[in-house]
Nucleic acid binder design. Structure first.
Lengths: 192, 192
DNA sequence: AGGTGAGGCTAATAAGATTAGCTTTTGGCT
DNA sequence: AGCCAAAAGCTAATCTTATTAGCCTCACCT
């Protein structure tokens, strides 16, 4: 039952190479032609592994969300409260800055249903942040709002920085630490 | 000296039509062909008004930032403190939700220099939010950080919502109001 | 009348994505 | 040892878009 392909090429390898290429040249610069060259086949051969560009982007997005969940999840291990929040936020931003292309693939991508790998991956990332919030005593009714706020903050900051949208004076790392402190203090004030 | 073109078509009209079309079909769906059809000319004629797709996107982005600055600026008139913050945030989000295509054009777009209309427009929006922060007694050294935080929050929330990234339970409008209250309380705690 | 230039148009070129259909390799089976 | 079915490649062809070249015409100015 082993499905060993002729070369070392399979769907996972193609998607991983696509994600890497997107990080290097930007999501818009990821073409079927450049990806084919990267993995050493002619363009049409890629269609043996992925359904096309849309399918490729979708799989890259799912990969990105899973990797982000892994990164943030690992970073949070052993921490709680403010430390967990800081670790999660830093890990998330670092991931986006190191993998801007694959993260960009996730933007505006909607899962087709609850079993879509994209939905599963999104849920994993979501759950990690939910766990971080557990370190704060937040009323049940506020958790969803706090989660969305946190997600907006992290996503907004990381994507703005990745797009070079912060151009003026102050140090960006410092701003991010300030943002973490701001969120932490605010979340502690929301208690109960 | 009147430069009356044969038809009612000029650069501003083309850019405005492009922005409107992008809002309707998404930035990715904005093609030179569909825009030409929309304005009633053949595709190559568009090149008499804009330099090409990149140039068009750039001009749409500048238009979007100027309109956002107008909308937020108007909304803020006559308010200060928490009221100004809420008005600005609501107006910004409303603008992004009503004009997702043109706003998307601004993402990742870098001005070529300080005289680029894009830079000017970005500065206008920036200045409006700066004015909002003046209603809080924030130390000089914290203003830039607070501004970036606020921008991340608004941009993050609005783009996530525009991309349908908030799928689970709670009411989105309610989350946004919660977020405004959160930011307000946090900013008041930063005083001095 | 005549000329000029902006604004259109058609036709041609080039890049990309995708499909069709043929070929080769390879693992499994006799 | 040798066959064969399917996976994985390849070439060639098609389609969509963007862009450029070069021509045409009308509005306006003299």
């Amino acid at each position: 039952m082993s499905l060993v392909p002729r070369a070392g090429l399979n769907q996972a390898a193609v998607v991983a190479a696509g994600a890497a290429l997107a990080d290097e040249v930007g999501l818009a610069g990821l073409t079927m032609g450049s990806l084919a060259e990267r993995v050493g086949v002619r363009t049409p051969s890629l269609y043996k592994h992925v359904g096309g560009q849309d399918d490729l982007n979708r799989r890259i997005a799912a990969l990105a969300l899973n990797q982000a969940a892994d990164a943030v999840g690992s970073a949070v291990q052993g921490y709680a409260g403010r430390d967990a929040l800081a670790a999660a936020a830093r890990a998330f931003r670092a991931f986006v800055l190191e993998h801007p292309g694959r993260y960009a693939a996730t933007i505006g991508m909607e899962p087709s249903g609850p079993d879509d790998p994209l939905a599963t991956a999104g849920r994993r990332l979501h759950d990690v942040f939910t766990a971080v919030l557990r370190g704060y005593e937040i009323a049940e009714s506020d958790v969803d709002h706090a989660l969305r706020m946190l997600r907006s903050l992290c996503h907004g900051f990381a994507t703005l920085q990745a797009g070079n949208a912060f151009q003026w004076s102050a140090d960006i790392d410092e701003s991010f630490e300030w943002l973490i402190a701001f969120a932490d203090q605010g979340l502690r004030a929301v208690r109960r």
